[in-house]
């Protein structure tokens, strides 16, 4: 299977361990990633879209047109990129006059958006195309001792009419994918909460993130598992800020789903960049990799 990965900005330029983990897992699942260095910022669905929605549409359409050139679906690994590219793809497929307006601008750089490919988050490819069985079969070291509280984040599932992943109130996709690694998904009450990244008032973000940490603590999970580098940012480095602000030392390691999968497939903790995380208790590292394994 061939896919065009859309790495975005945060993964390659802030959390390259996520890129490393994705590349490792895709190799194990016999997926060819056809990279293209012309893919830019998606552009970001929060600030860029709030500044100039028309240019946001045009730049996103430019990115999609690159995948169209090669006839490949564009696959995202960040919920923000998923939000922008899925939404723009949807609107341009539905709205002929908007598409015409966007294409007028793209013509100036010799491009055209046609509407011939799909944009999807990689986790939906795992669930729908590769399948849970094949994922389970690729696991060498089931992570049986690892209890994972899930954070879905906002933009994988919503707006549901556009994302078409599943009902955003009762999602199961990440629980199923975590089970496939041998790890145990753990319920917690704030699993559908937002990470709070976009709010201007710092108190909202701090309290929102704290609510998630308290919920994870209460659940008895070992870590918080997620699929978005922006959520990761809020919960990993953000945890230092929360602990300082509320005078409470949270020690909840945060892990990107593909890091878990890669570890289960035999990657070392170094290969998936676990040592780069700000919050990474030694006891959790031992759970992830009880003994050294050659990748």
């Amino acid at each position: 299977m061939q896919l065009m990965p859309f790495w975005g900005c945060m993964i390659p330029l802030k959390y390259p361990q996520m890129e490393s983990a994705v590349r490792f897992t895709m190799e194990k699942l016999n997926v060819d990633l056809i990279d293209d260095n012309r893919l830019s910022c998606c552009p970001d669905p929060i600030y860029f879209k709030a500044g100039d929605k028309m240019k946001w549409l045009i730049l996103a359409a430019r990115n999609i047109s690159i995948a169209e050139e090669k006839g490949l679906d564009l696959i995202t690994m960040c919920s923000g990129c998923t939000a922008t590219l899925c939404e723009v793809n949807h609107h341009l497929k539905e709205d002929a006059s908007l598409k015409k307006e966007v294409n007028k601008k793209l013509k100036e750089i010799g491009r055209e958006y046609k509407g011939t490919v799909e944009v999807r988050h990689l986790v939906t490819v795992l669930r729908d195309d590769i399948g849970l069985k094949k994922i389970r079969d690729s696991v060498k070291v089931p992570l049986e001792d690892v209890k994972v509280a899930i954070h879905y984040g906002c933009h994988l599932l919503k707006p549901s009419a556009i994302m078409k992943v599943e009902d955003p109130l009762t999602p199961t996709i990440l629980a199923e994918l975590i089970k496939a690694t041998g790890a145990v998904p753990v319920d917690h009450k704030e699993y559908l909460m937002c990470c709070g990244k976009a709010c201007k008032d710092v108190d909202i973000s701090l309290n929102m993130t704290r609510a998630v940490f308290e919920s994870v603590e209460e659940s008895g999970a070992d870590c918080l598992g997620l699929i978005c580098p922006t959520c990761f940012d809020s919960f990993d480095i953000g945890q230092l800020r929360i602990s300082r602000h509320f005078q409470k030392d949270f020690q909840i390691p945060v892990i990107y789903y593909f890091q878990l999968l890669a570890l289960a497939q035999g990657a070392t903790i170094e290969k998936v960049g676990i040592p780069y995380h700000k919050i990474m208790p030694k006891s959790f590292i031992e759970k992830l990799q009880p003994e050294p394994i050659m990748a």
Binding site: K158, P159, A198, C199
Partner: peptide
């Protein structure tokens, strides 16, 4: 308006 989380719950 700048305190919107952009979570899309209202959209739903």
């Amino acid at each position: 308006i700048w305190n919107c989380t952009n979570c899309y719950n209202c959209y739903e």
